[in-house]
């Protein structure tokens, strides 16, 4: 009986409660950003959180909703970082063109890459995404134009302040959350869940697997690229090892698993925990990876659907 009342009505109730609350939070965060009352170090924490949320939503869209587990989204983080460095350092482009152009570079690059990756599925697909990112790292390490191993600096004058970068990160975060939220409530969102559960049956009910996978892959590349360009704008420089590092995937998987893969709220919760925890663990060098690993295992053991999943369940039982 209980379960019957859950289901659709439950999501309907969530929709009513969560959406205005989310909008309110974004309004407050924008107001804080524009007012200039936040200290710089607080803004730096927050913008990290925003960017991990965006990366988490992108990964979640692919891996959590569509069942296309990726270990290689750093390909687009690094690519966007380099695009930002090249556009500003070599072509002297101003800030407003940099972010959209960097994202566009990612989407354009994602088309041929997807053509290769989509020949594989499941674990092979996951490993292939990683290999693609590794290949990009090797390419940039040997490419004179981008400074090889010594990397590139992002040159803008005046260089955007923390406040500006905060607002950019917040905007990217908001775009990511709203996009994924909209998708989960759309025709495409249902298709993704069907595809994740059974691609053969999904094709048999009329779903175009290639088109659906491509849509998701390009969207994830776009969001990861936007986040990546702001990340490196904040850092000021990029190296092949920092741009294309597997540690991006490690962090993002942590964010999604802790928060809850396959939910929109999951990466939000996960990113907050991740950034705070990382700061805290920085005081205990050497322990940080062990602790992150232990926490991941504990969460997988006690809340297999992440914190967002556990909260949802609790709400349903009440």
């Amino acid at each position: 009986m209980m379960r019957k009342i859950a289901g659709l009505t439950d999501t309907a109730r969530l929709k009513i409660n969560v959406f205005p609350a989310t909008v309110l939070v974004f309004v407050i965060l924008y107001a804080l950003g524009f007012s200039g009352i936040l200290p710089a170090n607080v803004m730096r924490y927050l913008l990290q959180i925003f960017l991990y949320i965006a990366l988490g939503e992108a990964w979640n869209l692919m891996s959590g909703f569509a069942g296309m587990t990726s270990l290689g989204q750093q390909l687009y983080v690094g690519l966007a970082g380099y695009a930002a460095a090249i556009l500003t350092g070599i072509y002297m482009q101003p800030l407003p063109t940099v972010l959209p152009a960097a994202a566009l570079v990612c989407v354009i690059a994602a088309i041929p890459v997807s053509a290769i990756l989509f020949r594989m599925q499941g674990m092979y697909f996951a490993v292939a995404t990683w290999v693609a990112a590794e290949a990009a790292e090797k390419l940039f390490l040997n490419w004179k134009f981008v400074g090889q191993g010594s990397g590139m600096t992002i040159r803008l004058s005046p260089y955007p302040s923390v406040g500006v970068i905060y607002l950019l990160a917040l905007t990217v975060c908001m775009l990511a959350v709203l996009t994924v939220y909209r998708i989960t409530r759309s025709r495409l969102g249902m298709g993704l869940l069907a595809m994740r559960d059974d691609p053969v049956a999904a094709a048999s009910i009329g779903l175009n697997l290639t088109r659906t996978r491509l849509t998701v892959y390009l969207l994830a590349a776009l969001i990861s690229g936007l986040a990546g360009s702001v990340f490196f704008l904040n850092k000021g420089m990029i190296y092949p090892e920092s741009g294309f590092s597997i540690s991006w995937t490690v962090s993002v998987v942590f964010v999604c698993i802790i928060g809850g893969a396959g939910t929109v709220a999951g990466p939000v919760i996960g990113a907050v925990i991740y950034v705070l925890l990382r700061e805290y663990l920085a005081h205990y060098p050497g322990w940080s990876n062990i602790m992150l690993g232990a926490i991941t295992l504990l969460v997988i053991f006690f809340f297999p659907e992440g914190i967002a999943g556990a909260l949802k369940k609790k709400k349903r039982i009440n």
Binding site: G7, R187, M190, A194, R196, D198, G206
Partner: peptide, 17 residues
């Protein structure tokens, strides 16, 4: 079946696509 979707959603998604 699409095991993580409800019975209704299984049928709905088929009609949609």
């Amino acid at each position: 079946p699409f095991i993580r979707m409800t019975v209704f959603e299984n049928v709905l998604v088929s009609g949609i696509y």
